[in-house]
Amino acid sequence: MPKKIYDSPAAALNGLLHDGMTIAVGGFGLCGIPEQLIIALRDSGTKNLTAISNNAGIDEWGLGLLLKTRQIRRMVSSYVGENAEFERQYMAGELELEFNPQGTLAERLRAGGAGIAGFFTKTGVGTIVAEGKEIREFDGEAYVFERGIRTDLSLVKAWRADPSGNLVFRKTARNFNPMVATAGRACVAEVEEIVPLGSLDPDQIHTPGIFVDRIVQTVSEKRIEQRTTNPG
């Protein structure tokens, strides 16, 4: 069996990076982001990146680290409200930005990974999102055509993996990760634990190993954006 397990985030990315590439990154806010792979990507110095990710991290964590070093030229996201540096670079014209509705972004990644060139959705009809795109009527309602997304590389975060690359996500840290995993021509997964082959329940695997090329076990910091608690 080809070896999918790598010793470090840097080793897991070795040979997969080039300037100007497109990378899809899993996560929602700081939840379920491949945080150590992002740090390794920063340290690699790869630049002129197009990053496709629901959010852009915060100034000091997640994709915010790559914005700070100006390694990202273009972002495709649905919401970037937590990142002041992002807003500054965008307003100054230093960063290209394409906003996608969150469901459209998830579906574009899912479609791309499934070999579907595009799809029609009602989301965004009559808004600037639909400008320049084909509109078609189905059953009396207008739909806009959106393209599937394929990327050079996918970076995901999972809870558990086995050596064949099967992945299990944990709670809401699943979010965009399953679709992102399928959209890349190569996919690297950062995981909290690698368990022996055969020990994951086949009924409970979220992402089958066929979608995952490399895995690396890391210790995640798992930062929290809004720690809200109930005293009662």
Partner: peptide, 10 residues
């Protein structure tokens, strides 16, 4: 204001 639509359009 540059934040994005998130899931609102959907």
């Amino acid at each position: 204001l540059v934040k994005g639509m998130g899931g609102a359009m959907d």
